[in-house]
Design a protein around this nucleic acid. Sequence first.
DNA 1: GTTGACTTTGAACGCGTGTTCAGCGTCATT
DNA 2: AATGACGCTGAACACGCGTTCAAAGTCAAC
Lengths: 208, 208
Amino acid sequence: MARRSAPESSRRDELLRAAYAVAARDRLGGLTIRTVAAEAGVSPGLLLYHFESKDGLLVDLLDWMLAHTIVAGEMHRQPPVDVPAERWLLTLVERDLRHLLAQRERVELFYDYWVLGTRHPVVRRLIRRALHRYRESFRPAALAIIATAPGRFAHLSADDLAGVCAAFIEGCATQTILDPDRFDAVRAMATLDALVLDAGRGVRFTRT
Amino acid sequence: MARRSAPESSRRDELLRAAYAVAARDRLGGLTIRTVAAEAGVSPGLLLYHFESKDGLLVDLLDWMLAHTIVAGEMHRQPPVDVPAERWLLTLVERDLRHLLAQRERVELFYDYWVLGTRHPVVRRLIRRALHRYRESFRPAALAIIATAPGRFAHLSADDLAGVCAAFIEGCATQTILDPDRFDAVRAMATLDALVLDAGRGVRFTRT
DNA sequence: GTTGACTTTGAACGCGTGTTCAGCGTCATT
DNA sequence: AATGACGCTGAACACGCGTTCAAAGTCAAC
């Protein structure tokens, strides 16, 4: 992806890995200069030598996470072969949903940042951009759907359709994290399937 | 927890109102014993006289919010008159979505609690229950849909359908809060409309 | 007027935080 | 050998936090 600083200081990267290890374990609330320093086996001062402040460390960590995470949305997706456009889009949604559910800690961490971003402009900008890129990954399939039935989506764009996909996935993620016993994302996926595909011919995504 | 039933101490309620005022303005990160005391024009010690700890205050505040908020999902909804079941459910979803978007601070505050709940069992239980009640509010309409087309939703329940509605709304809320310029929840609603209603006959919810 | 239980105060304590900084290696260059 | 830039240390500082508590205030009952 986008590496930004030419000489990737190995020390910086090592510290970022330690910071991520702490954040993945104890979330942002447990991430302090001292815990990260301890994780890296290093003195606290060193962290402020390489990052100008804790704030800078947080931003750089988010940046690092966004760069080192294939957000699933970013994988290139092959155009359809024979399947109808709706099925293509639903398949993408399902893949992302599974991907998100498989890395719960990371998702929870992103929500920490999301909340932080509500008050922190730089963090907000980063998350905003990541979410935008995420939505964009649905555009090709969304365009295909709209091309299929132009009248049905009058006044609506592929962006709108992509937004719905992202909303569904995010909403499934929040509910799964909060209440995994009562909310089953896979069944929700199957329900969406049945809702969108006309005259359901059975259910596709019922696998556990 | 604390005593809650007996006589609603007016002082307690006054302090909770002050706490909510602070939280609505500065979120949970800005809510401290001292800021709440200042907001109420009272000494810090008094807060720990009426609430056994800050933790207790946070829990009681959430409890208070959940009790004093008509979560929109909780309004009784009249059964359908003439409209098809899908339209009924979509109308409910739209109403809740508008309701949520209209009180952004409160929603952001709930997300603060949601994140807190990830580490705090009591908070988690409260939010979980609220979300469950929220989902339940969609059940009647969801049942009607399933009754309409039993084959289409084989192996799926009204709970699943309700979960999809909640997921969509929550996802729209998170995206709107993060990026209101790029994500338009009303257009997303219209898109869902077009997606679900077979052979769209035009778009309903395009009003800004 | 005195008592005594309930409210309220606000200074103080302990703790953890982000941050600073004087000093200590280390080591390529001179 | 001397230099000096760089990486790194960890004790120390200031600050804000939740919490405590002795003291003061309030007021109905006696």
